[in-house]
Amino acid sequence: MKCRVCRGPAVIDVRRHNANFCAEHFVKLCRDQVAKAISEFNMLQPDDRVLIAVSGGKDSLALCDILDHLGYRVEGFYISLGIGEYSKESRGYVERFASQRDLPLIIDDLPIDYGFDIPHGSRAAKRAPCSACGLSKRHLFDEAARKGGYDVVATGHNLDDEAAVLMGNTLHWHTEYLGRQAPVLPAHDGFPKKVKPLVRLTERDTAAYCLLRNIDYMVEECPMAAGNRHLFYKSALNDIEVSSPGAKHSFYFGFLQRAAQHFADAAGQEMPAIRACSQCGAPCSSETCAFCRLVDRATAPVPIRMKPSRSSTKVKT
């Protein structure tokens, strides 16, 4: 295997580009792809202050490294979710990465700042863990951006993530979600602008990028993720990709270029009026925002269920 650019020994094959690359030129390919996505979708301006959601995984750390290399002013935002060892370890990866690279880092701690963790809080609030977790992450990320005055927030969603979401939305014809699925969400009603600069890279690309750049990332997965549908779609798409290289890319980018516009109406109809949450002031569409309602339910004292006493079983009418 030889590098397409320099003809030196290659370390990786990228079948959707029909090419192999050495370490140096693969790293350059990844950065070029991110720069291309940024300009294609008008994601960032040169002097933007960018807040990056970091988890300690390969995607968010690769994103920090690439945006920093492209010259953007980046800061990291990490949320400790209280998911046992997983949260402790992932925080370690983020803190080591940030201190090695002088990356300014903001940390929110769900158990300390809000009094609940994802495993217990989601049970108390009768929500699926990932749903409570996603809601909390979006809320805290938006809030950090608003309070810190950042121009834009960036997440490490890659091509596999976006193609898997698209597949789920298409299989179930969630037209309102299809209308909103985009690599850039403009700022609106107090919500920050959101961008996904890694949409032109696969998960294999970001993992290889981290290895080649000596970025130590957390390989272990969140224990709550096992068996979720998102993973199932990713694996189905990778099965297709093996026999049809480039399929994920054309599925997602073909959708953006030729199909997304047809769902714009479905997305628009559902947009409710925005006001401020009565508890935290965040923009929301009801009296109290979904996060404050989650906090209330997740931290409510648990009622003790009593066995029916004799007298109460007798009182039958």
Binding site: D161, E203, A225, H230
Partner: peptide, 10 residues
């Protein structure tokens, strides 16, 4: 052999 799929084990 390192899996690269995030969101759980495969």
């Amino acid at each position: 052999i390192r899996p690269v799929i995030s969101g759980g084990s495969l």
